[in-house]
Nucleic acid binder design. Sequence first.
DNA 1: AAATCCTTGTTATTTTTTTGTCAATATTGC
DNA 2: GCAATATTGACAAAAAAATAACAAGGATTT
Lengths: 231, 231
Amino acid sequence: MYWGVKMNLKKKVSLAVVKRLPRYYRYLSDLLKMDIKRISSQELSSRMGITASQIRQDLNCFGGFGQQGYGYNVEYLFNEIGNILGTNNKYQTIIIGAGNMGQALANYTNFEKRGFKIISIFDVDPKLVGTEIRDIEIRDLETLEDFISQNYVDIAMLAVPYEQTPVVAERVAKLGVRGLWNFSPMDLKLPYDVIIENVHLSDSLMVLGYKLNEKFDFTRNDSEKNNDCDF
Amino acid sequence: MYWGVKMNLKKKVSLAVVKRLPRYYRYLSDLLKMDIKRISSQELSSRMGITASQIRQDLNCFGGFGQQGYGYNVEYLFNEIGNILGTNNKYQTIIIGAGNMGQALANYTNFEKRGFKIISIFDVDPKLVGTEIRDIEIRDLETLEDFISQNYVDIAMLAVPYEQTPVVAERVAKLGVRGLWNFSPMDLKLPYDVIIENVHLSDSLMVLGYKLNEKFDFTRNDSEKNNDCDF
DNA sequence: AAATCCTTGTTATTTTTTTGTCAATATTGC
DNA sequence: GCAATATTGACAAAAAAATAACAAGGATTT
């Protein structure tokens, strides 16, 4: 069947595959830096510690980037994955919360290289409001609504205390911000059309704890039980 | 067959299950705070947005914590999962790198509540060395070897610049530190018996970017192509 | 105390993900 | 330019994960 237009038969790519893309991107970036021009799935496989089959299958979710008998052109593949991930887009980004985490995010210049341009930071602390981080002004959180209605804001990075997170998230989502990058240990749920990506640092740390326990013995220090339930 | 000792027939729990545990722990913590005494897999299912079947199957990897016709006792289950995750252990932890990320980690008091006691911070900046964060002294990175050999250190949180990460990781691993929590966008690989847990912030952000592109159109700002490959 | 209702733990089924295989085809060496 | 080699993309098989189904048995109601 042919309907006269390019059919959108592309099957939705699974999250498992998508989550591996940034890792491919990193390895390809390293290869580029090492001035390696071509790479086979076999060779990449041994570098990354995953099967060559998986690499080929992952990449083929998005199209045939390789060539039989040759492998993949590193620069080409790097750029293609970049396009898939959208690192060539420019996202207008704000940071909410200028505590240590917010400042760490603001100072992490590499996000900019991936398309995430930080255009403003917001906080409630009068001592911070008016100051700058890397030429980015810290504004009063009160002015959030004004700012967003006067500037395109695609993404908000939320680095605010636990209790305030849902409130702030609701405020930005209501204003049409499309993506939230949340650092609070909670699962944000909002009645808006917004993509939420969580960075649950404590979860990651607890998984480390689990793996340590699995392998080593840490009971030696089990003096006090810890039954409180705050995060 | 019975060999006189408790047999270790427990099948290794898959990482997929382990990674969900902290999330269960969080929800149970919330229930505790709300003074809810019991919960069925059904009810928890609708709160968490996963199937009741998965919850029951996950929990049964570690033992039968529930009761037919009743459900799960919230406090009991919370404590059991805490034990599995090892939140009742005490891990002697150091932070390496007192930049914004290191300071953010040092100020995040909740890690302490999960058993991760930060006993020292290390940096190379002479302006920081000697100062304190929450009564934790920042020491010269030069003194790392001395410190570790004189104190039990279970875990090192690595919040140092990209290039220095492998070097520092090697140093602590060599000294017998058991776990590394790495914030650099690289896959650490070390010839030591050490558990490494990575927090790849840029990866997470790029997945957010992918999801945004999948759903919305961000090509409007595609003015300059970005082909550099630094992280 | 009996009957009904709930809800688990377990097993079976389905779905998803990963791995293996191989024909097709470009590259490389002679 | 031809044969040998390398390597992909597609498909098949296997493994793993998620979901469904249900018997067993405690909780609740009458």
